[in-house]
Each structure stands twice: as structure tokens, then as C-alpha cells.
Amino acid sequence: MLALVVDDSRAMRMVLRRIVSGLGFDVVEAGNGQEALDAVDAGPIPDIALVDWNMPVMDGLEFVTNVRSRPELRGVTLMMVTTESEHGQIVRALAAGAHEYVIKPFTPDAIAEKLALLGLVPAGSAS
């Protein structure tokens, strides 16, 4: 299983990399939505993308919208991981095609439980 971690902060990419690689994923990183699209196009196609919202060049919402518009990427699960926590922002992200949403800050268990909801790791994988 391959996870694409998309966040403009290297520190946050490190935090997420530690968590998802601990759950058995291989990890590819991207610093913004455009880099993430480039990574997807260069292949291999990830099983899940963990996507920040506010990033330079291309933000997470635009990345999600772009991925959802491409039928060949239908198999990519999209999970926002962002500090955006207004009710309306979560609604927007889900409407754009995000499958799940984690609000920063989060604990490792929160990521593991959301991945379990999405069927990507077995239930009870939380450390």
C-alpha cells in the first residue's frame, strides 16, 4: 500500500510519514498540490493521499477536485489532514470529493482509526 503525504511543512510530512509507515504503508511526499499531481502522474498511483489544505502553488482542495475529475484515479482515497476546522470548510472538502477529514492537531490513533474506517488498515491498528 502506498500513501502520498501532501503538506507544505516538512515537519508535518515527517509526523505523518512516521504514523503511516508504522501502519505498513510505503510513503511518497509532496510539498503542494502541484507536486502531488506530478507524483501521481509519474506513478505509481497511491492508495491514499493525506492532503493539507493551505499550501503554496496549488492548495489541497484544488488537488482533491483535480484527482476526482480523473476517472483513472478513482481508486485513490483522499483524506484531508488540515487545521481548517470550520464546519463549512469540512462540508466543502467532502463535496469536492474528499472521503475523510482529520483536523490538526491529531494523535497517531486518530489517523489509524480513520484509515480503519476507510478499510485501508484493519480495525484495532491504533498503537
Partner: peptide
């Protein structure tokens, strides 16, 4: 970013 984003949600939005 994390602190500011959460403070934003305490205030009138969007």
C-alpha cells in the same frame, strides 16, 4: 498554522 487555523474556527466565518 495549526494554532491559527483553530483560532479561525472560534471567530465569525467563513
Amino acid at each position: 498554522n495549526m494554532i491559527g487555523g483553530n483560532i479561525k474556527s472560534l471567530l465569525p466565518g467563513p
